[in-house]
């Protein structure tokens, strides 16, 4: 199945931007909200606290998990001009933007942040140094940013919405959460009538053959994706104690384990439209699934 909805704008309420982003309104925005409400409903079954995070993550915070070395090809950075008056003046004297739409920057301030690449990083930063008294279940939806070699409407975007449900706890608590989570999602997919295949996957590391983390993920698979027509619309991820160790989060006398269930909201829209057609009248009810 193609990952590209062939004609941008053919969907009611969808507008595709050359920057690899979608704008939504009307029935498609309504579907977006219903899909996310469904995820929030599942998160509530674990009593997960809901969080809203800003779009920046500190590069220093991500250094603890070596994000920028593992995924430099995906990273996007917020950048600002050095505020010195002369620098700003020099900037305004140029073509901004030039005839090809490019902005030629003069001196910039130091880049200290990364635009959120995955929603759950915010939790480990927020809970740094905590001793957990019991398993902690949390959820958030974040706009995530990733540079890719190509983009396709709703399927592969430079910015997209990721909803995650995360558990931090002992290894057994996280294992139980991920097993329950996968069953919960599978039950809902059955009720909706959306067929998926569950497939083991690895993260998209930079130069994977040279990266020991990629090899380690192959030897000890930690990621299972829900594939709808060849498109991963979500994943179930076990981190073991990787984040607990990096952010000194402790549970029961050890580094906390963690795991997350992640959903690409726009990809769910893509899968629903691909499966049920572009007419909103044919889209499934997502209530009580």
């Amino acid at each position: 199945m193609s990952h590209a909805l062939s004609v941008p704008g053919v969907l009611p309420g969808h507008r595709w931007l050359p920057s690899g982003q979608s704008s939504l309104t009307g029935p498609l925005l309504d579907l977006y909200r219903r899909v996310d409400r469904m995820f929030v409903g599942w998160a509530a079954e674990w009593g997960a606290g809901d969080y809203l995070f800003p779009p920046f993550l500190s590069a220093r915070d991500l250094a603890g998990v070596d994000y920028l070395r593992s995924f430099p090809h995906l990273a996007t950075f917020p950048v600002a001009l050095d505020p010195a008056d002369e620098n700003l003046l020099e900037f305004t004297r140029g073509d901004v933007p030039d005839a090809r739409g490019r902005v030629r920057l003069t001196a910039t301030t130091p880049v200290l942040d990364v635009l959120t690449p995955a929603a759950c990083y915010h939790f480990y930063v927020a809970f740094r140094g905590e001793q957990l008294e019991g398993p902690r279940y949390v959820t958030t939806r974040a706009t995530c940013f990733r540079r890719e070699t190509h983009y396709a409407p709703l399927a592969r975007q430079s910015s997209f919405s990721m909803r995650e449900i995360v558990c931090l706890g002992t290894a057994d608590e996280v294992k139980a959460f991920l097993e329950d989570g996968r069953s919960r999602v599978a039950r809902a997919l059955d009720a909706i009538g959306l067929g998926v295949a569950w497939e083991t996957a690895t993260d998209p590391f930079f130069r994977p053959r040279q990266n020991p983390k990629h090899l380690a993920q192959r030897l000890d698979p930690l990621k299972t994706e829900m594939m709808a027509g060849g498109l991963a619309i979500g994943s179930v991820n076990l981190h073991r104690s990787y984040f607990g160790e990096a952010f000194q989060i402790r549970r029961d006398g050890r580094d906390a384990s963690s795991g997350c269930i992640a959903f690409g909201v726009e990809r769910w829209l893509h899968a629903i439209v691909a499966c049920f057609g572009p007419d909103p009248a044919g889209w499934p009810s997502l209530e009580a699934v």
Binding site: A171, P212, K213, L215, A216, Q217, L219, D220, R240, S241, Y242, E245, D255
Partner: peptide, 13 residues
């Protein structure tokens, strides 16, 4: 040994 992070990914090579 990997599951309990006795060895981490950095040790695999």
């Amino acid at each position: 040994i990997l599951e309990q992070r006795i060895l981490t990914s950095l040790h695999v090579l």
